[in-house]
Structures are given as structure tokens and as C-alpha cells.
Design a protein around this nucleic acid. Sequence first.
RNA 1: GCCCAAGUGGCGGAACGGUAUACGCGGCGGACUCAAAAUCCGCUUCCCGCAAGGGAUUGAGGGUUCGAGUCCCUCCUUGGGCACCA
Length: 822
Amino acid sequence: MSDYDPDAVEAKWQARWREERTNEPDLEHAARPFYNLMMFPYPSAEGLHVGNMFAFTGADVYGRFKRMQGWNVFEPMGFDAFGIHSENFALKIGVHPAELIPRNIATFTRQLTRMGGMFAWDHVLSTTDPSYYRWTQWIFLQLFKRGLAYRKKGAVNWCPFDKTVLANEQVIAGACERCGTPVEQRVLEQWYFRITDYAGRLLDNLDDAAKMDWSSSTVTAQKNWIGRSEGAELTFDVMPAVAGRRITVYTTRIDTLFGATFIVLAPEHPLVDAITTPKQRAAVDDYRAAIAAKDLVSRKVGEKEKTGVFTGAHAVIHGTGRELPVWIADYVLMEYGTGAIMGVPGHDERDFEFAREFDLPIVRVIAGVGDADDAPLDQASISDSATDRVVNSGPFSGRSPADAREAIIAMLEGAGAATPSQPPVRRKTQYRLHDWCISRQRYWGPPIPIIYCERCGPVAVPEEQLPVLLPPLEDFRPDDSGISPLARNDAWYRVPCPSCGAPARRETDVSDTFLDSSWYYLRYPSTGMNDRAFDPDITRRWLPVTSYIGGNEHAVLHLLYSRFITMVLHDAGFLDFDEPFRRFRAHGLIIKDGAKMSKSRGNVVIPDDYLARWGADTLRTYLMFLGPYQEGGDFRDASISGPRRFLDRVWDLVSQATDPDCRDAEIRHEVLVKWHQTKQKVAGEIEALHYNTAIAALMELVNALREQNCSEHTVVTELVQMTAPFAPHFAEECWERLGHSGSIFDSMWPAFDPALTLTDDVTIVVQVNGKVRGNVVVSRDADEATVRSQAEGDASVERHLAGKTVRKVVYVAGRLINFVVA
RNA sequence: GCCCAAGUGGCGGAACGGUAUACGCGGCGGACUCAAAAUCCGCUUCCCGCAAGGGAUUGAGGGUUCGAGUCCCUCCUUGGGCACCA
């Protein structure tokens, strides 16, 4: 009987898996493909920490389990190695990223292998490899061809520390997501992807159960991010009249139209110049100058005190007489809706504050159940329920807000007949989502494959000339100019126009890292393919991804962009599905000392010491045991001894099962039932990603076997099989010691017999008035009368029933009997 | 402010509306040992009690139910996300 030696066992099986290519499915002929994807890492210089390992192990457990259920599991791994993370770190330590990244990838590869992941290394990829980013550039061109990539000059988020443009998604509370520096506003020409064209579809597919089975928290996050609102655009004439100029506002509450007492335009609104009266000109110009000088931080998250200025103009709905003063104020955003609103101070908090600030009238037009029609408002009432009624609104008074919305739209559509070219009202669905800015004025990314020609404008680099290689550049440091470092390399960017041959220049911006990661799952199965991004046959067989597991921090960024890119490629005829991830589950986070494990908090735990001391299998089992996988849990090193003891005990059971002298072939009935119950429970729990309770069930089985002194060969074999997803090397070794050949991962997951999961006797809880007063053991098929008479015989129950009248008896077969007494 | 999670022993955490505290850690006691570690056995929610037994208990307060950690309402706390989106 040898002791369990994790180092020897893990080294042996890792070598064997490599030699026998155990983890490489036959992608071309697989009969039951199962694409088990996990979010690929950014290969940081620090290496893998236990938070990453927790995430990967959980996904790996699931893949190994599915494989033992007979699926051909493809579990690839790769590296998201372009981007600001890598570049900034390279700058910090003074090593070129082209040198640093391969080093980091080597470290990650070693750690991921050491962890015992079932990775198909034949298909490893890095987004920095020209054979990969060639196709990232190709995807850009597909969007460009279809008018979905466009250039726009506009205010963008500029991080003065990282010296680059940030996507809206990378700005958190007005500061750079990465470095926390307050973000400034800059006007630059940028490439955008028209993701807003897909907003409705990105939203609607979320509810399509045939396409998507996702964690509900992730679905909610995406819905909120896309932010659909149903409303109407309403057009006003301007007084004094300016030829052909009208103001269009967007509102979701047109039922409050009669409560509108002013109009507000965003300060940047194009109409402001035209409508401002001479008298107000100076005040308006001053205000606009002041707003333009403000950075985005103070505008977006600064104090929400209302400021603004009157333009001197008035607005009036065509055909009605009421005139509303037109103001400009920075609380109205140019990016959303029409950049103009109708101010309804009685029923909108922001308009209320504005009206208070500038002494504008506040009118109540919605009243709740107990409210008088003209009850004064000391704050905006934003109520919108069927029990509310519209008041002070002429012919619409008395209706519910929802009714009034319909009626007012109908009335205005009628009025629109007076100006058929432009009716004053139009129903409009509005999204919060913005187009995706993909330009980055940085070095470490794929160059955007566009050439600017004086005569032809922006021209696509011909596909056969891809990739546009990122040129070697000694000084890749970004500067304050807003121009990419690539512009320093004349020889690289001066090229002839592909269309007319005239001298032209390359685009010198690179694309966003999120573009790299938006399609990597399409590339994995086709990494060997050089003339296309992905092989159509292999893709048809393996995609959409069967199971995707990753962090919820990517709920709205990576996952939304990936869905968008997939839709575009579908519409372009390259894919026959438009949702990439059939099932998505978010894993939880590892907490250490009460906080999320992260570099910035300095509580990162590196797995190397634990691997050296306990081995990968024990660390894996511990990580999966410390809490529900989808919620995460606390990492405390003291607790790791529990899972190790568990493996040691299984090891001993294997020793006993193979020792002819102490082999006990008898399986007592209690053991038999526990064994089958465990098989049923463990499979169900792993499927639900409840790994902690699956392991607990295995521990219970081990305890039962030890108590009953049972080490029967079949039972121990199946125990080992169920342990395999968590402790793969350990299980392979036990499998071999038990006399089985081949990899345990080519064996079938143990089946259970439902009849044997039931005990002959059941314990019935006896309650009196809902309080537990005792229990009785009866045979499983005992009838109510038998249970009742036995229950009444229980001494404690008898005492509580004495002198009382039984009013009612609730009997739940196999569970409990409750006497309701008075 | 809005949206989403979650509040259970000393700790990590279990519980189809049906015996709350499974499993594990830690602790206490015992066996083995010259001793220690490892291992094995037993106890371990709290309070009263020698015991038998009784009472309390899932963030707080209400409600539904024969029965609520679980469902409903109000509130508090923590974590995460969004934040002037009309």
C-alpha cells in the first residue's frame, strides 16, 4: 500500500495525456461535438492567480464531466495578448511587448498545464499572431464593405494618463477604467461600428430561448445596457419664426404634454445659433463656451446643479397657441434622443430642479388616487400607473396616463395633416446603446486596414494584402498629440492608393482589443486554416458554442460585441447562426480578506506554492468546494486540508479494493442505496455547476463506505469516476490501480438505478401544530392510518396531544404528519 | 438615485414550502506515540438543566399557510453594475 504522492501522479499523467493526445478531439469526424469554451486570459506578467484558476477549473470540470457522458469535448485555450494592459506593462518595465508577450504566454501555458486543464493545445491561439489578426482585419473590412464601419469626428473620452481614446464602456464614473484618471473630452476623427443598427435584434434575441440560455443576471445587464425606451418625437415651431427651422424633442411621457412649461436644448444643439435672439446672444455664447471648456467628468458625474440660459425664442406646437420658452442647459445630452426635451417640471425630477432654479411654472397633470387636481407639488411625481389619472389637460383629463398617451398621439397625428411633409408627432423607439468606437491611438494592436487617398478617400486594403503587419517600432510610447505612434514610421505608412495608385497613407490607428476577442471562438476550431478566417464545415459542426463560462465583468462588453460581430458575419453569409453562445454561465469571484482578488487590492494569491505543497488535484478540489461556483467564495488556506483528506481516503479505499486480503465483496443495503443516491445527486449537481455540493455528496459516500467497512471494487471504481472531473490526475492513477485500462475520461459516467435510490424504511416527522415533536420509522409503502397510529403512540407526541382535540391531520406521504389541535 | 445579487453556527457554506445548520474547516476530549506530527474514534447552533427534557434561532418587522431560511409586503445592511438616457 503506497501513499498518495501528487507530484509523481500529476507529472505522470500530464506526460501521458500529451503523448497520447488525450485532450485533442477529432474535429472533423466527431459524432457528438461539445464546444466547451471559457474566456481566454490576458497573459499578464504576474501569471495566473487563484481567481483565474478557479474560473478555468470550474469550466474544465464541466468539460470533463460532459466527456464522460459520451460527448466529444473540444476545450481550447488562447491568449488575448494585444491591448493597453500589455503595452502599459511593457512601458513600465522597459521591455518591448513583442518580447514580453511570448514570455508571459510561456508562463501561462506552463501554469495552465500544471493545473490539469483538458486543453486542446493543438488549437492554441494568440490575438497578436499575424495569422490571427490578419482575420481580425478581415472582419473590419467586412463591416467597412457593408457600411457598418464609418469615420466620425466627435467628442471622445480621452485618458490623459494612458494617452488614448476610451470607449464609453471603459469610462467608469467619469474616470479611466484602467488607471482611474479623470477622463477628458477631445475631438478626434475615429472609426465606429454601427452596433446601434443591431440594438433591437441584440435585445430581442435575449428572450429567444431557442438561441440563448444565459445566466439571468447577464441577460438583465445586457438589456439595461442596450436600454430600449418606447416614446415619441414631437416637433415644435419656433417663434420668432426661423425659416424651415423646427425643434424636435423626444419623450416617453407624451401624456404629460400639457404639463410642459419650457423646452430645453443641449448646448451643442445645431439649432441654437439660428434661434437665439440678438438680446440673448451674448448670454448664450458665454454659456456654450463655458460648457465646451468643461471636461466630461464634471459634466457627467459632477454636481447635478442645474444651469442654463434662455435663448429668447419660444416654441409652439403647430396648430395650438401655447408658447413655451426655449432654454439651453447641459443636463440635456446631445447624444441621446434628439438632443432636446420638453420640460415637464411636475413629473420629471430634473425638469423640476431646473424650474425651481429659474422660476419656471410647475403644473400638475398627473394625479394619484387621493390627490386633488391642483394639489401643489413639492417634488416631481413620476408615477405612471393605471390608477393615476391625467388632469389639467383639456379634453384628455380623466384618462389614465397610458390612455392619454394614445389619445394625444392620435390628436397630434391628425393635426399633422396641416403640414403633411412633417407631422408634429412620430412614435420612436430609442436606445441607450452608442455606436462602438474601435480606434485606438496606440501601438500594440492590429493596424486598421485602411488607406487614405486624396482622390479616392478611405480605401480598404485589398483582402489578399492582409495582414497589414504591425511594424517593429523601438519607440512605441504614446504621446499627447492624439496621433498613433505608428505615424512616426514614414516608410510604413506611405503607400500607393490600392485603387488609383496615387501616393496615399495608411491609417495609423490600431483597433480596440475587444475586436480581437469578439471572434476568437470562431477561430479556435480552424486554427490550421490559412486561406480563411474559419472553415465552413468545421464551423457548422462545432458552433454555436455549446457552453461558455466566464466572468460577469464582461456581461456588457465582450459578450455584446461578440454577439454583434456574429450577427454581422451571419448577415454577410459567412455563418448560419446569429448567436455565438448557446449557453452562458457567469462564474463567481474569489474573495480574499473580504475583497475581490485583484492586483489593485494587492490580495492576489499565486497558486504555485499551493501546487507545490498540495498538488493540482487537491487545489482544484478545494477551489470547487469552497463555495457555489456561480457565486464564488472565500479563499482561506487553512481549509484546503479537508479536500486533501478526502482524496487520501479515496486513495485508501482504492488500496483496500485492490488488496485481496481485505477485499469485502459484500455491499450492505444501506451502502447500496447511498451509492445510487450519490450517483444521482452528483450528476445533477455538476450539471447545475453546484460543484461544492457534488463534492459534499462524494464525501458523504466516502464516510458511509468507511463506516460500513466497505471497499467493494465496483463501488470504489465508480466513486473514483465521479471524483475524476475534480481531481483528474488522481483519478487516472486510481483507475489504473483498480486494474482498468485506457484513460478514465474515455469511460462512461456511472449510471444509477432509480429503484435503488429509495430506502425500504422512511422516517416520518411528527408535528403537533407545526412543531416537531418526534418521528417514527415506517416502511416506505405504509398508509396514512398506520403512520397515524404509530405517531400517536410516540411518547412525546402523546404528551402534546393529551387533552386536546385534533382538528385536522396533514399527511405528506414519506415526509411528515402534522396534528392540528385546539 | 436606479437596476441586479446576497444576509443562516466560531468560520466557508447545505437545505423540491415539510426534522434548519448537510459537507468541510476550526475547537474540545480520547486512542496510537517516549513525545510531536500524521492518522483513527467521539462531541461541537445558542440558552436553562446533573439528566430526562424544555425553550430560542436563518438581518428587522408584518402577512399568506397545517407548516416559511424558502412565497408576498415594508425596512436595514453588504457586494456588484449603471448613473442628468427625457
